[in-house]
C-alpha cells in the first residue's frame, strides 16, 4: 500500500514524527521497560538498593492463591460482561434495523449512552440499587430481599457486571447496526422468498453474516471489561467486599498505589502487558490485517 508519488526531504518527516515518537518513548516504552526491570528486582533489606532476583516475583505471584483467584474472577467478569452487552446490543440492533416509524429517534436514544464514563455508570447504578439511597435497592429490602452489595460478594459481582455491561451496550449497538446495514438487501429478500421467517432467518442468514462484527466486538468488549471498567468497579466497591470484585487491574492498583508493593505490582503489570499482546495477536490473526492495510 505504498504511494507512487512522495515528497522529497529527509529533515521534515523526522520533525513531523518527533512529537509522537518522543511521547511514545517517554510514556510507553520507558514505563514498560521500567515495569519489566522492577519485576526482575527487589529492594534490599536496608531499602538502599535493588537486587536482581530473576523470575522470583513471578514465581511468588503465581504461587499466590489470591492472585490466581483474581485471574479466574477477571476471566469470569470479562466473559459475562461481554456476553451480556453483546446479546442485548444485538437484540436492540436487529429491531432498530427494521423499517419502523421513529427509527431515527430510537437510534439516537440508544446511542447516547456511549458518552457515559465508566465511573459515571457506577454513580447511576448506585442511585438505583444502593440499599440505603437507591430507589430499587430500598424497594428490594422493603420487600424481604436482603440486598446489600456492600456486604454480599455475589451481589457486588452482579452489580459491577451489570453496570459495566450497561455502559457498553450502546457501543456494540452502533457496530451491529452498521453491520446489519451492510448486509445486502438482496440476500435478505432471497431468504424471505424462500420462506425463511423471523427467528430462522436471523439464525441461518443474519447472524452468520454478522460473525466478523460479533468477533471484533467480543475482543473489544473483553479488553474493555479487563481495563476500562476500573472506574466502574473502583467507584462502586473498591474491589470489595473483601476481594470479591477485585479484578486484575484493581489488584495492581491496590497492591502498587495503595500498598506500595512495587516488585509484585510490576510483575502484575508485566503479566497484564503479555495478556494484552496475546489478545491483540489473536485479533490480528483472525480479523485479518484490515487495520494495517
Amino acid at each position: 500500500m505504498d504511494r507512487r508519488t512522495v515528497f522529497n526531504g529527509r529533515l521534515l518527516p523526522v520533525v513531523l514524527l518527533l512529537p509522537q515518537l518522543l511521547l511514545t518513548l517517554f510514556f510507553f516504552y520507558w514505563p514498560a521497560g521500567e515495569a519489566v526491570w522492577s519485576s526482575l528486582t527487589t529492594q534490599d533489606a536496608f531499602g538502599q538498593g535493588w537486587v536482581f532476583v530473576g523470575l522470583d516475583n513471578f514465581q511468588d505471584l503465581f504461587s499466590d492463591p489470591l492472585y490466581l483467584d483474581s485471574i479466574v474472577r477477571t476471566v469470569f467478569f470479562c466473559l459475562t460482561v461481554s456476553v451480556v452487552a453483546i446479546s442485548l446490543a444485538l437484540a436492540l440492533a436487529v429491531f432498530a434495523d427494521r423499517q419502523i416509524a421513529g427509527r431515527g429517534v430510537y437510534r439516537t436514544l440508544l446511542i447516547w449512552p456511549y458518552a457515559i464514563a465508566p465511573a459515571m455508570s457506577a454513580v447511576l447504578f448506585l442511585f438505583v440499587l444502593n440499599p440505603r439511597v437507591g430507589l430499587l435497592g430500598r424497594w428490594l429490602n422493603r420487600h424481604g430481599v436482603a440486598w446489600d452489595y456492600t456486604l454480599n460478594g455475589s451481589q457486588a459481582m452482579l452489580m459491577v457486571v451489570s453496570a459495566s455491561a450497561w455502559k457498553q451496550v450502546s457501543y456494540d449497538f452502533i457496530f451491529f447496526l452498521a453491520g446489519l446495514q451492510s448486509i445486502p438487501r438482496a440476500v435478505i429478500e432471497a431468504a424471505r422468498m424462500d420462506g425463511a421467517k423471523g427467528w430462522r432467518r436471523f439464525r441461518t442468514i443474519t447472524f452468520p453474516l454478522l460473525s466478523p462484527t460479533t468477533f471484533f466486538l467480543l475482543v473489544v468488549n473483553v479488553v474493555y471489561a479487563a481495563f476500562d471498567t476500573f472506574g466502574t468497579i473502583y467507584a462502586l466497591t473498591q474491589g470489595g467486599p473483601g476481594k470479591d470484585t477485585e479484578t486484575l487491574v484493581i489488584k495492581v492498583f491496590r497492591d502498587g498505589v495503595i500498598n506500595q508493593d512495587i516488585g509484585s505490582s510490576s510483575a502484575q503489570s508485566v503479566v497484564l502487558m503479555l495478556g494484552v499482546i496475546l489478545i491483540t495477536a489473536v485479533q490480528f490473526r483472525f480479523m485479518g490485517r484490515r487495520t494495517l492495510s
Binding site: T24, A32, A35, F227
Partner: peptide, 29 residues
C-alpha cells in the same frame, strides 16, 4: 508522504503501543 530511512521502524514503534493501555503500566508511568 515521505520516504526516509527507518520509516517502517518509526511506524512500528508507534503501532506497537496499541497494546499498552495506561491500566497495564500504572506504577512505572
Amino acid at each position: 508522504f515521505f520516504r526516509f530511512p527507518f520509516r517502517q521502524t518509526a511506524f512500528w514503534l508507534i503501532f506497537v503501543t496499541l497494546m499498552l493501555p495506561v491500566e497495564v503500566r500504572i506504577i512505572p508511568t
